[in-house]
Design a protein around this nucleic acid. Structure first.
Lengths: 211, 211
DNA sequence: TTCGTCATGTAATGGGTTACATGATTAC
DNA sequence: GTAATCATGTAACCCATTACATGACGAA
């Protein structure tokens, strides 16, 4: 064990680099548009992380060869790409369906790479998040009924808005879980009639559901 | 300048203690039900903060006298309450309508104490947050149109859900801002016909200034 | 008497930001 | 030529968490 990285960034970086090699600057932009509403990382976070992933041998840096034969002795742009170990590690991260995957900090990132995630893991994460949210919902609801009429209208408004937001996310999750189930059933159906098909296209491999 | 506290906790603690004196343990519970969906603080955060507020003279600690004349030499519970300076400082914090008040981290807390906030400040904060969100919305929307069709369905789903969440919050803010305007107009009307009425209902104490 | 909750703290750690420093490349 | 953006980093700091340590109090 080398560096004990434990953040979302690791997954995010590995996941993005798996799609295509990039240099740090672009990586950060893609990161922040990918996660848009949820998180935004700064260079001060990203570069040290890259450095460490490098030290762990999960990524390598290549000089960016520009085709126009210039001198390029300046300081070449660094293009990061996954090593074999990096890919392996990514797969491992994508298979872990624990709290880290459905808590607030991690869920968005894990979800963002669902296209590269196994179907059963996807389902576990979605259900994990749902139950997490329902738990929170329950807590707040009981707290609300216990202290009702003792809070001012603004506090009430805030709590209500929060409650509705979470309820909305739960409905969204229900929708997604339903679709996942349908997709899984579809898979089974397909597999029954056509038994040998495994990994061919990279983007949405098992995407046959009409939705 | 002593401690350079710059977090939301300071406001939250001061605000809650202004409503009623409490000891740390209860304070934390009230904090976490108050902010329910948005944040949750741990003791490791709260107690050092209290210590520092104490050092700054913004709060004092009183022994919790239990009316049943016990020995109480054990370790009395500590009840924190605001000092005059603390109240003053709280007022100052509640009047600051800057980015800190409408960014993600701070908005919830500031909103939670709107009942103690001047009407014009409330409005500024609500509008500040709205424009902040609209800005973010625009960024994500353009990013979405630029990279559309190049992302997998899960990523799309995530971004869409994020987008809708923010749009929903904007609608909520619009609603609130509308109500604030109505309230302000109401105030003006009341003031015109009946000039000397100040504090009777506890909800919107000093709300007379229409922007 | 033991268990759960109330109650008060501290030390180590973590994850991240801000501000700074540097330089290349592109568009005007 | 100069401004904006691309591009790569570092050091100092900040806010908060986790895990730990301690102990009182009430109920079973």
């Amino acid at each position: 064990m080398v560096g004990k990285r434990g953040g979302v960034l690791e997954l995010a970086v590995l996941g993005l680099l798996h799609e295509s090699p990039m240099h740090g600057y672009e990586l950060r932009k893609r990161l922040n548009t990918l996660l848009g509403m949820f998180r935004a990382f700064s260079y001060g976070t990203l570069y040290p992380c890259l450095k460490q992933l490098l030290a762990q041998g999960l990524i390598t840096e290549d000089e960016d060869e520009q085709p126009t034969g210039a001198l390029q002795s300046k300081r070449a742009k660094i293009v990061y790409k996954l090593t074999a170990e990096g890919k392996e590690h990514l797969q491992k991260l994508l298979t872990e369906a624990g709290p880290a995957a459905w808590e607030d900090e991690g869920f968005g990132v894990h979800f963002a790479f669902f296209a590269q995630t196994r179907a059963d893991v996807r389902l576990r994460i979605l259900e994990g998040r749902r139950s997490r949210l329902e738990e929170r919902l329950e807590q707040v609801r009981t707290a609300l009924t216990r202290t009702r009429e003792r809070v001012d209208s603004y506090t009430l408004e805030l709590q209500n808005h929060g409650l509705e937001s979470v309820e909305r996310e739960v409905r969204w999750l229900n929708e997604l879980i339903g679709r996942e189930h349908a997709k899984a059933a579809d898979e089974v159906g397909r597999q029954r009639q056509d038994d040998r098909q495994d990994d061919n296209d990279n983007d949405a491999p098992q995407g046959t559901s009409p939705s």
